[in-house]
């Protein structure tokens, strides 16, 4: 690694770190204001809640940017371990406890085996799930389901909402450029997020298999995101 690249790496990391700290401060303060105005103006509180979700989104985008930058420059070092899946799912969803409550969205976590342990980088998988959850919160009607189960010899984590479902073009996000249409995952925030999720999933390997993600629309119409890890 040459000197310039090393510096760029540090600059990226420090900037992201700094902006994240600022965001967290903003988030804390909005939360305090929300608590104050909740009684007097429920509408105002709802607006503030939207702002909080946006800070969460900026946060995720920064993590994606830094992660992808590091992957591109081979300075990305995932650290895999066997971890309790429930803890990872909880860590991802606990970021949104208040937002979910404020928007009246019900979150259900369903685990086939609560003591299920899987081999992964817990921080990365947490950020993938957090990323998907922000999307769900924006597009769902009033419910998000997380289902964890073993499937095809791997671990399947599905995040399902009861909104309008993914647009047709997005379902083919892994297809050719024509099929992808506007959501070519090299462009746009949603695309970048999915690209990041896909990259993270495929870093998880076992023998010849590697992890993947799959978008579909649920039978009841909502959007379904599945992360599968070998």
């Amino acid at each position: 690694m040459n000197k310039l690249e090393l510096d760029m790496n540090t600059i990226m990391a420090s900037t992201v770190h700094d902006v994240k700290n600022a965001l967290s401060l903003i988030d804390d303060q909005i939360r305090d204001v929300m608590a104050e105005v909740e009684q007097a103006s429920p509408e105002g509180a709802a607006y503030l809640n939207r702002i909080r979700l946006e800070t969460g989104r900026i946060n995720n985008d920064l993590v994606h940017m830094l992660g992808l930058y590091r992957m591109h420059h081979n300075t990305f070092h995932p650290s895999f371990d066997d971890v309790p899946v429930e803890e990872v799912v909880q860590d991802a969803s606990s970021r949104y406890t208040e937002s979910l409550a404020a928007l009246g969205i019900e979150l259900n976590i369903e685990m086939e085996d609560r003591d299920c342990v899987w081999y992964m980088d817990p921080a990365l998988i947490e950020s993938v799930l957090a990323n998907i959850l922000t999307n769900c919160i924006r597009y769902t009607k009033d419910r998000v389901d997380v289902q964890v189960a073993e499937r095809d010899g791997g671990l399947s984590i599905r995040v399902i909402d009861n909104g309008e479902g993914y647009p047709e073009k997005m379902l083919n996000f892994m297809g050719t450029e024509d099929e992808q249409g506007d959501v070519n995952f090299q462009t746009g925030s949603t695309g970048l997020g999915l690209f990041f999720c896909y990259q993270i999933a495929s870093l998880h390997r076992n023998g010849k298999q590697h992890g993947t993600i799959k978008l579909s629309n649920d039978d009841q119409g909502g959007a379904s995101f599945e992360l599968w890890l070998p």
Partner: peptide, 11 residues
């Protein structure tokens, strides 16, 4: 830890 230093130092 500060989040961004984790993968560099902690692992």
């Amino acid at each position: 830890t500060a989040e961004t230093s984790r993968d560099r130092v902690m692992g």
